[in-house]
Amino acid sequence: MSPQDKGYAHPEAVVSTEWLADHLSDPALRIIESNEDILLYDTGHIPNAIHIDWRRDLQDPIIRDYISPEAFASLCSRHGIEKNTTCIFYGDKSNWWACYALWCFRLFGHTAVKILDGGRDKWIAENRPLTRVTPSFTPCQYPVPARRLDDEIRAFFEDTLAQSRALRPLIDVRSSPEFCGEVTHMPEYPQEGVLRGGHVPGALNIPWKAAVNDDSTFKSAEELRRIYFDEAGVDPSKNTIVYCRIGERSSHTWFVLTYLLGHHKVRNYDGSWTEWGNRVRAPIERER
């Protein structure tokens, strides 16, 4: 099913592999790959795709924070991304890091953003072309954003604590064993230095994976509404905070709620469990 036929609130925010295959050389687009596997892009990528590394390119090298508006403008300028360039993100792990990179672009006010439905896995499964040729684009002058939209789409520890105390909606998108405190890391991943397990008091547990099909494409709006609104009880009229362990899985859910379901008030708590679970005296719940 084409993303345009899935009933999304913002169908323009998702493109199909077929569509992208027909627009690989469109100068108004920039295709951006962002992965967890840090060498994956170098092994082969969609023709004309550039690589944005979530850690090297988007995060401050010293402080746990994002780059400055000046650094973001420089990043975009280097890759020939102008203010009105449409950026199409894709990547491994069902687009976790693609959604994370998209969310970061939104932090800097870049609104022309889309996700490739199904990401890298679907592109490869359909035997579409890959290349090891790194494209180069004529550098441009991206205007330095006036500020980062930290207040609009990002939540910090204090915001999340206030949300929890006020019994406002919080969604923990990690796996059930992580939510219950049985483990402090994802299945198949090493421990990343979290001292306590559990979840933020009052949080709902809706694992990110609920939003995707087996081929990594997003479920239809009808299915998503049933999962998030009808079954889990998420109220789209209320300010909601999503979190996971370091903010990438919750970026995926942030994208789903914001673009596919049209929820206007979702913020991503990127400090997530690696901040909360290490914070002295942060309240923790462990029951389901």
Partner: peptide, 10 residues
């Protein structure tokens, strides 16, 4: 060092 990250400790 650029490629040694927490997630790539594997």
């Amino acid at each position: 060092s650029e490629l040694v990250r927490l997630r790539s400790q594997t």
